[in-house]
């Protein structure tokens, strides 16, 4: 009986407290970004941000770099995870362990290591852009592997592959027509997560001397507090946009229906 009564009130309390914890700073930031020095409301801080050429510059740079990092990460993770599921299921825990290593290594250590190792050298790895993409590719690994692994687990990878092979399909066709379509939701989820993460990344980009979106946000915060608040709201809006897109694109996804079988 007492369990019943608690369950009516406590969860609500937790929900309300959690909501306050997240909403209050957000509302305060929004309010601050809209406030006028003499009192009243204005969009001046937003206008200033949107007029700033380096805002657009850093945003475009970060979007392109994040997309490239996602592609690099997927090119590494999808074939590796697929192969692990198909041929060496016993090795899967090791692949997983390997893929979460970037969690353990802080970005600052990662970038120092890369600079120390390749910085003085010649060839493609010595280019800061390549170093940046390589670092981001590594950061993306755990997120992409997790979601791809989950997606693969929701289907019978060996049987589906064998069915396609016995029908005459080549390996490219198996991946393209059978495996990837059923991974759509998983791929989208992991990719958007990585996009959002890299959009706000600061340590690696600033160490390598890039004016990325993360770096721009920090610099703005040091110079113009109100514009920084506006920027935070804009970034927040972009994340929501990404999540909305994810919901839209992920709809009708097969792995979401797998339970209905």
């Amino acid at each position: 009986m007492s369990v019943r009564r608690t369950s009516g009130f406590t969860p609500w309390l937790i929900v309300v407290l959690t909501a306050l914890y997240f909403v209050v700073p957000l509302v305060a930031t929004a309010q601050f970004s809209l406030a006028e020095p003499g009192g009243g409301v204005s969009l001046q801080a937003y206008a200033a941000v949107l007029r700033d050429a380096s805002f657009w510059h850093s945003l475009r740079f970060s979007v392109l770099v994040a997309l490239a990092a996602v592609l690099i990460g997927l090119a590494l993770v999808v074939p590796a995870a697929y192969w692990a599921h198909l041929r060496v299921p016993r090795m899967r825990p090791w692949v997983e362990l390997f893929s979460i290593l970037p969690f353990v290594v802080p970005p600052i250590v990662l970038v120092f290591g890369i600079v120390r190792l390749y910085g003085g050298g010649v060839g493609p790895m010595a280019s800061p852009l390549v170093m940046l993409l390589a670092s981001y590719g590594v950061i993306a690994l755990p997120y992409l592997f997790r979601s791809v692994d989950n997606g693969l687990r929701s289907m019978d990878v060996p049987r589906l592959t064998e069915a396609a092979l016995s029908l005459g399909a080549g390996w490219g066709m198996v991946l393209w027509r059978v495996i990837l379509p059923n991974l759509r939701g998983a791929l989208l989820g992991g990719s958007f997560l990585v996009l959002a993460l890299i959009m706000g990344e600061y340590a690696i980009a600033s160490m390598l001397g890039f004016n990325s979106f993360g770096v721009y946000m920090l610099l703005t915060g040091e110079n113009a507090a109100q514009q920084a608040a506006a920027l935070a709201m804009i970034a927040f809006g972009m994340v929501w946009l990404l999540i909305g897109l994810l919901q839209l694109l992920g709809r009708g996804d097969i792995s979401a229906n797998a339970g209905a079988r």
Partner: peptide, 15 residues
């Protein structure tokens, strides 16, 4: 090999 295969788990392409 030109052989058709039917599996216990059906293995239909879910998409």
């Amino acid at each position: 090999r030109d052989m058709g295969m039917v599996f216990q788990s059906y293995a239909l392409f879910p998409n």
